[in-house]
């Protein structure tokens, strides 16, 4: 029983990381149909900004979060203006261009900061574990889980309750008509891309104490995160949350049953099968095209 709960928690912890990485990707993909393969590199940049703030300015992880969010959002805004905004008519080419951006960002970090893995200390207040009977859970992982749910709630509120969200949903449904109502679609797109990138940066900051921070850390994350988005259903952030839960738990389950590599392979194959039979995902969005 205790192993089972531990395993469940390991899955939930993995799911919370996936959710934060995938949420930004889902918003960008849902809003503009752009598959942002540079998303993993935004996560990586987030981790490195956290590292830089901690090492050079002595700012701890928690106070660094808002700075990281703004910094990576600015990077995302720049990328959208310079490259992605020119490619909205060519969806396949956005995959290629963002892939290229990913390589460039990764290589810039490798040259500028170095290829070796960096250490980032977790916040001191959250060190240690909490025990429930025989089950021992790491405080920091619990915090990441709660934070991911909070971010998800905030994103949902942004979409559903604010004027920006209303504009974005209008543009998603019909760009031309919403432009007729005076919404500046390109501005909405740029803000959305920046917000998605900022979320990726936050994800990078939060996972930096848990994983190896290297220039190539994003490559592994982006494939998984993208698969989560597709499984969840394009444009449905609720679907993304459910899908990251499923993928996280399944990966943890297979890893326990078999081993890590076979677990990953099994999940990849399962997801390929899923896309084949339900290409519109768990919660397909109904949009008039």
């Amino acid at each position: 029983m205790e192993t089972f709960i531990n395993q469940l928690f390991a899955g939930a912890s993995l799911a919370s990381i996936l959710l934060m990485v995938a949420l930004g990707l889902a918003i960008i993909y849902g809003a503009m149909g752009v598959i942002n393969l540079a998303h993993g590199e935004f996560v990586m940049l987030g981790a490195y900004v956290t590292w830089a703030l901690q090492t050079f300015l002595g700012i701890g992880l928690l106070p660094a979060l808002p700075i990281v969010f703004l910094a990576i959002a600015a990077v995302g805004w720049g990328v959208e203006r310079a490259v992605v905004s020119r490619l909205y008519r060519r969806p396949l080419d956005t995959i290629l261009a963002t892939w290229g951006i990913g390589i460039v960002l990764q290589q810039l970090v490798r040259i500028g900061i170095g290829p070796e893995s960096r250490f980032i200390a977790g916040p001191g207040i959250l060190s240690g574990n909490t025990g429930f009977g025989g089950v021992v859970l790491s405080n920091y992982r619990i915090f990441v889980l709660v934070f991911a749910i909070a971010i998800f709630a905030a994103t949902w509120a942004l979409m559903a309750k604010t004027e920006f969200g209303r504009k974005l949903r209008a543009v998603i449904q019909n760009r031309e008509i919403s432009e007729c109502y005076g919404i500046r679609a390109e501005k909405v797109y740029a803000m959305t891309f920046a917000y998605g990138a900022g979320l990726a940066g936050l994800a990078g900051a939060l996972i930096s104490p848990l994983v190896n921070t290297t220039p190539s850390m994003g490559t592994y994350l982006v494939v998984d995160a993208f698969l989560v988005v597709v499984v969840g259903g394009v444009g449905s952030i609720f679907g993304t949350a459910v899908a990251s839960g499923i993928v996280g738990e399944t990966t943890a389950f297979f890893s326990m049953l078999l081993n890590d590599t076979v677990g990953r392979i099994a999940v990849l194959v399962a997801i390929i099968l899923f896309i084949r039979f339900r290409p519109s995902g768990l919660f397909p969005q109904i949009v008039r095209r």
């Binding site: 590599t261 990953r264 390929i272 896309i275 039979f277």
Partner: peptide, 24 residues
């Protein structure tokens, strides 16, 4: 299943990752 465009790209990419993991 009439899978096209972006989804073909993603399925082939996922397949590649799985195959490489398996070979290793």
């Amino acid at each position: 299943a009439r899978i096209t465009g972006v989804f073909v790209a993603i399925i082939t990419l996922a397949f590649l990752v799985a195959l490489q993991l398996w070979f290793i």
